[in-house]
Structures are given as C-alpha cells and as structure tokens.
Nucleic acid binder design. Structure first.
Lengths: 339, 339
DNA sequence: CTGAAAGCGCTAACAC
DNA sequence: GTGTTAGCGCTTTCAG
C-alpha cells in the first residue's frame, strides 16, 4: 500500500504539503502542486479512508435507512436510493445502507461509532420513534417524509395533503360528484405512515370543500383483495365515478377488475393515480397522475445534508408542490344511465 | 466523545484490556471483564469505527454493487439487497451501496482506499469488465451471477441453464410440443447479461433434447410491446401452447394480452415463469414457476465473503439447483381444434 | 509558501 | 492475566 509518506518522499516535499495539495485547504505554488500531483499519479496513491476519517473527524459517508416492508412499493424506494447515492457521490460522499428493521438502535450504532457523519431516513411515520433519537445524535439528519413533530429535524417531502386535494379537484373539475381514495394496504395506515395519512387528509378536506362525496379505503395487493375492495366500493356507492389510487402495484390488476365489472376507463370511471410517471405511462390507458418526484426529493435531501455538514442552516421543512398530469384515464363525468 | 482511554480509566485497567474484553481475543479474568463491561455501559462507550479500522486494517464494511437499470426487475434486486444487508449484519458488517454506473473505477476507489474490505457484485455479464479489476484488488469479492471467465473469483448463482431446461421439461412432460421463451428486454441480451443468456442456453438445449419446437424472443415492458411480441409469436407459431416467461413486470399485462387474444390459461396456453414465489402467487391464475432464491443467494454470497475474509477457501462456483413449483398456469396439452 | 510534529482512537505486539 | 507502547495513515496546528 502506498501512503502519503511515499508520495511526499517521491515528490521531495513534506506529507503536509501532499495533504494540502489534495485538499486544497491552503495555497501551494503551482510548481509544487504539479510535482505532487505527478507523484500521486505515478505511485497510484489513494488516501486511506479510515486514516482520513480518524484525523479529520469526517467519514464522508452518509447512512440511508430504507424500509424493507413488503407493503411498500419497491421501485419507488429504489428510485429514492438511486437518487441519494448519485447525489451523495457528487459531493464526494458514499452511502451506507441500513435497513429499518435495525430500528433506532441502528441509527445510534452507526452515528455514535462515527461510521457515518449524517443520516437520511425514509418511510417516516407520524409519530416516529426515530425522531427523538435523531435529534439527540451529534450529527445532521434529513427525513424524507415528515412526522407530526419534527422537533428541529430537517424534512423533505412531497406535499401529500396538497396531492390528495389536487386529485379530488381534478375529478371535481371534470364534474364528478362521488369519488373514492383507493389507498395503501391497511398495515401502512396502521403504523400511521406519514405520506398515506396526509394524502387521506388532503383528500377528505378537498372533498368537503368541493361538496363531493369522498370515501376512503385501504387496499391489499392481491387480486382477490382488489376485486373484493372495489366490488364493495361500487356496491356501497353505485354512483361512484372517480377513483384516486395511491397504491402502485395494484394499478394493473385494478384495471382488470374494472373491466371485469363492466366499467370502462375513463368513460364510466375516471382514475387518478399518485405514482411515478413511468408507471403512469406504462398502463393502458395511460394514467392521469400526480407524480412522486423521487429523484428530486432524494437529491434535495442530500443537498440539505451536505449544507448542514458545512454548517449552513437549512429550512426545517421543504414541501414540494404536487403536479398533476392529465392523461387518458380521467375524463368528464357522464351519467351512465343516459349513455 | 468517550474513548477507550476513558473506559480504561473508569475501570482502572489498561486500554488494551478494554480492547481485549471487547474483542475477546485473549482471556480476561471474569472479574476484570465484569468491571470493564460495567464501565462500557456506564459511559455509553462506542468504539470509533475509523480508529478501529485504521488500527486493525479492517473496516467491517462490504460494498454492494447494484445495477440501476430500468430493464431489471427492481423488487428482486431489493430482495437481494435486503438479504445481503441482513446477512452482513449477522457477521457484524455493514454494507456500502454502490451503483453500477460508477463502473470498475468505483470498485477500485472503495477498495483501494480501504473503505470496504470485501465486495459483492450483482448484474454480471458474460464478459464482465469488472472481473479483471476485481481479481487484481487486494481483497475478496463475490459475484452474484457468473461470467464466462470467472478467473479465480467466487461466484454464487442460480443454475439458470438448468432453470431454462426445467421449464421446457415441465411443459414437454405435460405434452406440449411447441413452446416459446418470452425473455427480458433486448437490452439485457445485448449486454450479454449472464442469467438471461444462460437461461436461453438451457431452454434451447432442452427443447432440442425433448424434440419440441422452442423459439425465443425478447420482450420490452410496455403493454404495446407485449401485445406486439405475443401477437407475432402466435402468428408465426399458431400451434404454440407453452410459454416460459423470464420477465417479471410483464406477467400481469401478458395475462391480459392472452385473454384479449382469446387464449385461456392454462387451457389454451400453459405458462411457466422464472420469478420470485410471491410474484407467482399474486397472479390469477397463480403461476407455475421456477423460483429465484434471492434471499438464499444473498446470504450465501455474504457467507462466502466472510469465510474468505477469515482466510478460508470457498468453492469458486456455487450453482443452486432450480426448483419448479407447479401452480395453476400450466396444464396438459390439449388440441384447441378438438376442444 | 512549506515543513515538523502532535495527535485522532484503537489494536496488537511485546513485556512481565 | 494484565500493562506499556508503538504504530495504523492522515490532518492540522504551530513554526518559520
């Protein structure tokens, strides 16, 4: 292994000079810099990460805590992860992957051992037990999602309240008077996952405001569950003509189920999904949707973290405004009995 | 921050004694051990990861290189990642997440800086440019998947050749005489992804051996592409009654397409998928399938790595035998014209 | 603009 | 069974 001392010797300078050439933390004469850089290349020198971390008190690693639950939509998680890794690399940081099932203890472990110098936490619940833990850690963290009490922590999230409302508004604008939110599996609500709860809130508020009937129901991932849930919904609300779907994996089967039940999309039933754009575009018909800007959120989270590491203060809460793209799955209300 | 010296002072022993109590690398009198452990708890001591890594030349971190391609089936990747993180934690290791798009240089970076002390690489191609790089690194690595020339590297994989053959055998045993492999998107073949190519090989060999007609075609993920691909297939091979599908995300739409084309499953068309069990069970009808044992493979990969770190030699190639579970999507051949 | 040297916190000889 | 201490490779004062 080639060390900084080897480089220094090869370049005929002190180790500190090599260090400063590499970090740019003090001015070096062009001549010396050249010589050192040449030596670095000649010897194939790579600074030792542990030594550097020990001396500088910075590991240049951020932790990413990701849920492993089967009730979450995995591709979206992956988009977040990809965006976070990519953004972190841009700032010369690496990403340590933690699974949520290590719980708060896992956060303490990696933080207190200085394995990482910042944390990104996903899959936030309204009353998240990790919030107090994170607040007491001696390093910055960013939540993707926002709990009821963030207590000084930094949160980045899509404004899911507004997203829920936006979907209702879209359907109401099209003339629909009775709409339903087909949500995540019930386990997601049971643990009060923030995004799901907030969407619910926005959906209900907007329905009330617009004077439309708005019902909400969770929905599991199996075909039979979808059939059952939608069947029940249509039975209880025969005049239902609008559906907001916040449950990506059920979309395909849902379209089947509607077909099976003799409801055409969008003629008899308008659909708006809250999902990634590529998912919305993959279906037939393509789905009107509020996009989940995973890449933007992940990038933003990392940028906030880096800013905090640099000592800047960042806003406590950044809520991205939702945008709705109308595609083929939603259309104007028409009375089926007239058609 | 509380250091090992603080603990030593508090317990009235030398720092080395604290170190040895923690590592168990030499015998300590029960009395001293007790005292030290009490001090550790009292002070809330956590060994500093960088200091430990620097002194011991072991970071206790393994790199996981994961593809970010959209043509891969993401949930399976996640299952691998989850299994690898979980297994690594059992051996007191953490996982650094690298995306494949950093390329071979990314591997060199984390390895040569001693950020990690072993690597797990996924999404292997037959001629993988990372193989020579990995071989030259001063630390062990394990590939999940196997290239043509592993050149001394350790590989863990499902026996995809056998998997492809197993599907054909299953269909041939049911009396089918003309079968097709509906494969991954063409980009996956173009870069000669190992699992896809090997499945192709096994499929073709078995078809020849069993004397059945076996055709192969890639398939993209969009609904239109599936419709087009299957339509072409049925046009070219009107007597086709068996389909092997190695392309998880298309399975849902494929079932639609077949319905649309008037082919009932399994009465008119038998289906066998190569996919995770939960995917197979989610569809209607449930799919006969060869499972991808992601958890087992991930665990095995980590165990091999840990063994190599401990100096053991492990087999160069571990191929897991495929198992086929017959479910509702495959049935005996019957002549449609007779039906 | 550059060098010398004191740590960073821990492990692992070496000594007893 | 336990203590002493020399590093691990780097960063960053402190000096000049």
């Amino acid at each position: 292994m080639v060390t900084i001392a080897d480089v220094a010797r090869h370049a005929g300078v002190a180790t500190s000079t090599v260090s400063y050439v590499l970090s740019g933390k003090r001015t070096i004469s062009p001549d010396t810099r050249e010589r050192v850089q040449r030596s670095v290349r000649a010897l194939g020198y790579r600074p030792n990460a542990s030594a550097r971390a020990l001396a500088s008190q910075r590991s240049n690693v951020v932790a990413l805590v990701i849920p492993l639950r089967t009730d979450m939509h995995v591709p979206v998680l992956m988009q977040f992860a990809a965006a976070i890794v990519t953004a972190a690399r841009r700032f010369d940081h690496d990403v340590l992957l933690l699974t949520a099932d290590e719980g708060p203890a896992g956060l303490e472990r990696v933080a207190q051992s200085s394995l990482v110098d910042a944390l990104v936490v996903m899959d936030v619940e309204l009353q998240d037990e990790r919030v107090p833990v994170l607040r007491d850690l001696p390093m910055p963290s960013v939540l993707i999602g926002h709990p009821e009490e963030a207590g000084g922590l930094t949160c980045v999230d899509l404004d899911f309240v507004a997203a829920g409302a936006l979907c209702v508004d879209h359907l109401a604008d099209l003339g629909h008077r009775s709409v339903a939110l087909l949500g995540t599996p019930s386990t997601v609500y049971e643990r009060q996952t923030a995004f799901a709860e907030r969407t619910l809130t926005g959906f209900a508020e907007a329905a009330a405001r617009r004077g439309v009937v708005g019902v909400e129901t969770p929905c599991e991932h199996t075909f039979d569950a979808i059939l059952e849930t939608v069947g029940q919904l249509l039975h209880d609300h025969p005049d239902l003509t609008g559906l907001v779907v916040q449950n990506e994996p059920i979309i395909g089967p849902l379209l089947d189920v509607l077909r099976r039940l003799g409801r055409r999309v969008p003629e008899d039933m308008s659909l708006v999904a809250i999902c990634a754009d590529d998912v919305a575009e993959r279906h037939v018909p393509q789905l009107s949707s509020v996009t989940i800007p995973a890449e933007q959120m992940g990038t933003l989270a990392v940028e906030s973290l880096i800013a905090k590491l640099a000592g800047s203060t960042v806003p406590e809460l950044t809520l991205l405004p939702p945008t709705l793209t109308a595609r083929g799955s939603s259309g104007p209300y028409s009375d089926r009995t007239t058609a």
